[in-house]
Design a protein around this nucleic acid. Structure first.
Lengths: 224, 224
DNA sequence: ACGCTTTGCTAACACTGTTCGCAAAGGAGC
DNA sequence: GCTCCTTTGCGAACAGTGTTAGCAAAGCGT
């Protein structure tokens, strides 16, 4: 009840038995385990075992599994490298989005995290930077926030599309069903799709995000 | 082992004890339960109880909980009403996206479903329709698929943003932390955000999706 | 009426997040 | 040095989850 949010809860108070792990230690171990085994395999007991301790011991540093995941998300949000604005806001935003995609590829479990967007210290730091990049842009704040939200949505969406290969069983079964239903002759437009024009998602990403952001923020064209 | 995909598995074979529930009955009960109680509360035992039976009985109709969710997703994908193309592909796509948003608001658990995109019969039907709408568009198939994927990503993203209100405790705590860190004076651009320009997400959605799709598919402007 | 096949149900298993009580470990005060 | 006192570690326990195995029940064809 002391503080309902993690980011406002202080660390150890100095008096009493000194803690063997800090909140950051637990977070790092959890990130490492999730990077290797995926999010579903991230159980309290497994990260505790990686720290050489018991399952319930983690609750001294973390209120719940959900809160641990919040900490993980905000921690990897610290991997963004925020450069000085170049004066070309679109280039800067695209570069930032590419960074976000790379972070998602480094930590594939990020795409499985659903919940509301986490606004920890590092997340706020990135948000502040985005608003800095758009400082001199004439759009109003609502439009800027929408563009930022869309950018984040596309990052996770593309990351999810890219890392759909590692589940070959499911993909293959789906492909078999797709071939079966296409052979039935319905869905002519799907059957006529030209696979040669389908480029890899991570190849299309920079151009796609550029066009999307331009469409949202740069309208030097009429309303229709 | 008979058929690895749900959509290719047949129904009852006629001989033997007649089944008391069909696969669709189970799916409908699960959708009803999820609409009311949310996805985390959707346990095998709860939908079984709603059907007046035991927990393990569901596995006669459904291979796993995951497969049940796949069935639910494809079922609600059948709620799309697909009209004849009007000749204005952008208008038609925006109308389709608005339908998708309404479906997500009718079934809030949809935003919590993560996994790979389900391509069941109804999902393929929608995909075929989208390709029909874009039939005469000069873009290549790769660009069209990217636009479709982006459209779906924005639908779930906006739906998630809209239904973030029903969790007031978490939202309020986050707002308290936000106010605290803004009071510290860092993040000046975030502090300077004008709340009056922030419109409701469901209000901005049609215009946002129109601009995004236009940016992706309609480039009558130079490359820069 | 009798097999045969398919379904329903219960109990069980392995596992999950989370809580509780008690032992352990170090600093402050004398 | 020895106590107190606060904080942490730990193991067992609890309620709940998805999933499986074995057996009883219920219709059809002969």
């Amino acid at each position: 009840m002391a503080h309902e949010v993690v980011w406002l809860r202080g660390v150890s108070s100095g008096v009493g038995r000194p803690p063997r792990h800090t909140r950051e230690t637990v977070t790092l171990a959890a990130i490492h385990a999730a990077d290797r085994d995926g999010l579903p395999a991230l159980t309290m007991r497994s990260v505790a075992a990686q720290l050489g301790t018991g399952g319930g011991s983690l609750y001294r540093h973390v209120a719940s599994r959900e809160e641990l995941i919040d900490l993980m998300v905000d921690h990897v949000a610290g991997e963004y490298l925020l450069h000085e604005p170049s004066g070309r806001w679109l280039d800067d935003l695209v570069a930032l989005a590419v960074q976000g995609l790379q972070i998602h590829l480094r930590h594939p479990w990020l795409t499985e995290v659903v919940g509301a967007p986490i606004v920890g210290p590092n997340g706020l730091r990135v948000s502040e930077h985005v608003m800095t990049l758009l400082d001199e842009h004439p759009a109003n704040d609502g439009q800027k926030l929408v563009a930022y939200a869309v950018m984040n949505a596309l990052i996770t969406s593309f990351a999810r599309a890219i890392r759909s290969a590692p589940d070959p069983a499911r993909t293959e079964a789906q492909a078999a069903y797709l071939a079966h239903v296409l052979a039935r002759g319905e869905h002519p437009h799907l059957a006529a799709l030209d696979p040669s024009t389908a480029r890899q998602p991570d190849d299309v990403f920079p151009e796609a995000i550029r066009r999307v952001l331009r469409g949202l923020l740069d309208d030097d064209r009429g309303d229709r």
